[in-house]
Amino acid sequence: MSAEKKFLLDGKPVTFNDGQTILEAARGAGHYIPHLCWHPDFPAHGSCKLCIVKVGGRHVSSCAMPAKEGMEVESNTPEMNGERRALLQMLFVEGNHFCPSCEKSGNCQLQALAYDLEMLSAHFNHFYPDRPVDASHPDVLLDFNRCIFCELCVRASREMDGKNIFALTNRGIKKHLVVNAESGRLGDTDFAASDRAANICPVGVILHKRQGFAKPIGQRTYDEKPISVVAMECVKATEGAEEVKS
């Protein structure tokens, strides 16, 4: 057995196994790197870019970049957190996010990250897109206003549920989620509230009906502890998923 391989994360040594990405290795060693589209049960997606780090002066997505011996990685620095904050602001202004009236408030990873990274305003002008909700399904409501295009529902439905309920269409700022039915309505698909895809949204797009505000805002997961702490507790507890069930 060869000697342990290590890289430096913000000056601290992190051991890793071959094939592990920077994010995976950091997480295993108890270091949190912010992320939204990355999920332990899926291959790296690399779209949200919240997990960007600097390696040898270059920006890379830590969820997709394989760890290498001797790398010097900068993550929890004012520069990287400043850029992450701006990416969060971009996600907030491209959709319609009204946290005070959102059922996911307190359980939402976008909101939790914004608190954790001390995002105080949206900074940029809002786009105010017109995205009608879909309430056609008996058990699940789709509120597209909050979509951040992490594609976790797309991936979970395809790879775990074997149903392909969701896909993305159009492109650029007009990109949006579509449902696998000619009517475009979730009610006309075989989607079920027990699907993995129905329970994986990190924000408030996919909501279970008749469960609204069962637990008051203020007592929810990220109301109690910041996401950087919750995420690391999840690693210790289950080595697995960190989505919050409401």
């Binding site: 779209s47 870019k49 971009m90 491209e94 492109r171 650029g172 990109k175």
Partner: peptide, 17 residues
């Protein structure tokens, strides 16, 4: 802005901003 594929946050939103 017209040609961005919209995959990653900075390009999808940044080009339109």
């Amino acid at each position: 802005a017209h040609e961005s594929c919209g995959f990653c946050t900075p390009c999808r939103v940044g080009t339109s901003l």
